[in-house]
Structure formats: C-alpha cells, structure tokens
Design a protein around this nucleic acid. Sequence first.
DNA 1: ACCTGAACACCGTTCAAGT
DNA 2: ACCTGAACACCGTTCAAGT
Lengths: 198, 198
Amino acid sequence: MPTPPRTSLAEIVTAGRHILEDEGLDGLTMQRVANAVGVRPPSLYKRVRDRGELVHLILNDVAHELAHTLDAAAATGDPRRDLRAMADAFRAFAHRQPQAYGLLFARLPEDWRPDPGLVARASQAVLRATGGLADGRHALEAARTVVAWAHGFITMELAGAFRLGGDVDRAYAFGADRLATAVASTADAGGSAQRSRR
Amino acid sequence: MPTPPRTSLAEIVTAGRHILEDEGLDGLTMQRVANAVGVRPPSLYKRVRDRGELVHLILNDVAHELAHTLDAAAATGDPRRDLRAMADAFRAFAHRQPQAYGLLFARLPEDWRPDPGLVARASQAVLRATGGLADGRHALEAARTVVAWAHGFITMELAGAFRLGGDVDRAYAFGADRLATAVASTADAGGSAQRSRR
DNA sequence: ACCTGAACACCGTTCAAGT
DNA sequence: ACCTGAACACCGTTCAAGT
C-alpha cells in the first residue's frame, strides 16, 4: 500500500541549510534534519544518499545564490565600479551566512564539495570585470588575485583573525581600491609593451 | 600504588598532528590518538580537557611553526624581497600540511582556535615588511591585504577551486608581484601628502 | 598518580517489517 | 512507494575500580 510522501528533497535541503547556519557543520545531523521536516532519520535516505550528499546539495544552493548575487552587483558596465560593487556584495553575502560561506572553499571530502561548474559560474562576473581592466593575457590571473584577496579577507575576518585593532571596514575598502589598481597596472617585470601583430 | 606515566602531553599533541594531517579533522578521534600513543581513550583525559583542547594545542603548535617559518624567510631586510620570500614560504608551509593549515583560520568553536597572540606573532614579520613599503598610516591595512590575498589564494588552491586552467604557480607569482606594488603605491583617492617618487 | 573496563548519550546508516 | 523501529558500528566522555 503506497504511502504519501511526508517531505521532499527541497524541504530537506532548505531545512539543512538553516540548521547548518544555526548550529555549524557538526550540528547538521541527520536526526536534526529529520526532526525539522517531520520524519524519522532513516526516511531521509530515500531522498539523499548520505549526509555528505546533503552537504553537497546545500553548498550547491549557496554557490548558485552567490553567482546570482555577483551578477546582480555588476550592473554598471564600468569594470572598476563593478569590481568594487562585487567585492562589497561578496562580503555582505558571506556575512549573511558565515557558516555556509566558510564551507564553500573549505577542505571537504571531494564529493561533499559544490559542483566545480557552479563555483566557476560564480567567478564569471569577476572575470568579465577584470577582463575589462587588465590586458587580455592576464585576465584570469587578475580575477584569481582579486577573488583570492576577497575570500581570504572575509575568511580571516569571520574567523576572528583581525585582532590587532584598526578599522576592518576601512581595511577592506583599502584592499579593494589597491587591488583594482594593481590588477589594472600594465607594469610588469618581463617587459610588457603590448605588441599587436596586426 | 602509583603507576608510571605511559605517555605525555607532547606525545599526544604530535601524534594528533600526524593523524589530523593523514585523516582530516573528522579522522582525529580520541580513539585513534589513544591507539597511537599506546593507551586507552579515557587516559587521554588526564592530559587534555577534551577533544577541542587537543585541536587547540595542535593549532597552537602549527601557528608557532608558521611564525618561525615567516621570520626565517624575511632575511634580506629589503621589504619587497622579504615580502616575496614570505609569500613563497607561506605557500610552501601550507602545502606541506594542508589539513592543519586549513584549520588555522577556519570557523571553529572559540576555544578550539589557536591563541590569537600566536597568530598575531605570525603576522608580525609581514607587518614589518609592509611597514617598510607602505606609508605608516597604511602599514596595518597593507599587511592585512597581503596576508588576506595569500591566505585566500592558498585556501582556494587547496580546496581545488582553480579549475579554469591556467598556471597556478604563475598566478601566484603574478599576485605577489602586483600586491607588493599595490601596497607600496602612495596614490590613493583621499590625496596623500607625500609623493617622493621620481 | 595513572590506567582501565564498563557505561551513557549520542552519531550515521542499514534493513526487515509495516502501511 | 514511503515510513519506521530495531540494530550495528562507531563516536566523546565520565567514573568507579584497579595497580
């Protein structure tokens, strides 16, 4: 005799996301998730292979949202303005959900991590902006430099690593400004004169 | 009748560090540690309050070693050269012990984290170098920018986030070079007094 | 003093049995 | 089809009992 479903994958993932944010990764237990969606723990395994897959699905959700957030922030078309807007949106996103953000680039088991494609998609907007700022040869390296800085800053901030005083907001603004300039600069050691062969 | 000690705190911490590196944080169980040092799990609680304190002690060890590594790398006295040497030493350190490194700035329970003083000590050498590069007003912000970039880059690299191809080593060298210039630059929007260059 | 087995409260996961 | 209790193999941690 068929039994009607008492929950759904989507409900499980969103419940899991809330629990993750409230209790941290260790607090994200199958029992708590089951409780939140109104079933017993074994029932979750009808929708999800194991706890790792649940984490994976949650992080996919987060990565997807991050991509959308960055796309929305880069609105002006002016690379430098867009880069700054994305940096601020990126940080705000991380502050809104520090636990989930902290896991986005964490050292997790391979199959827990978000799909590489989704993470790549999130960095596309950044790549577009740096492409308009740096010369073409260095667009990818420039994007990586900017994203690395932003991610590192936010991670350290959220981990409470900035305890030498000073204004953290100003330090972020300082970094964003200097990074944009640094990445746009065409002065590099190896002789940079751009040779067009046309 | 007294029983002679069968292990020591130091032995427990170093055993824990090896297990952490081999098996990850989840694999660092009290049972495995006990096994490695030749006692039963309950005996560990004679030397260590709980598993969290063991993690804390391990990370203190790592932070201490990192500080020493950076100090040793900054040998020339030339800020720009030292900064580059520290960036490379920093990355090599992380690659040597990715699991431990990944936890150094991770979102852990407050009392698991390394002592803030030890982390601050590790950044002192960087602060010294940026102090010789940026003007005094911006030395702290400059140090934060550089450390954030390096930490972010390494974290993303270790998490396997760089999948768009390209040469990761070259991207790091690119970033290190540009960061040093960016941080040294005196050109900022607010109008800075000193322009001694050229 | 230090070590240990037994016990407790939790986990994730499987599976046969229920509807 | 979906849900569940019972069971299993693990955890961290406590504690009384052993030397």
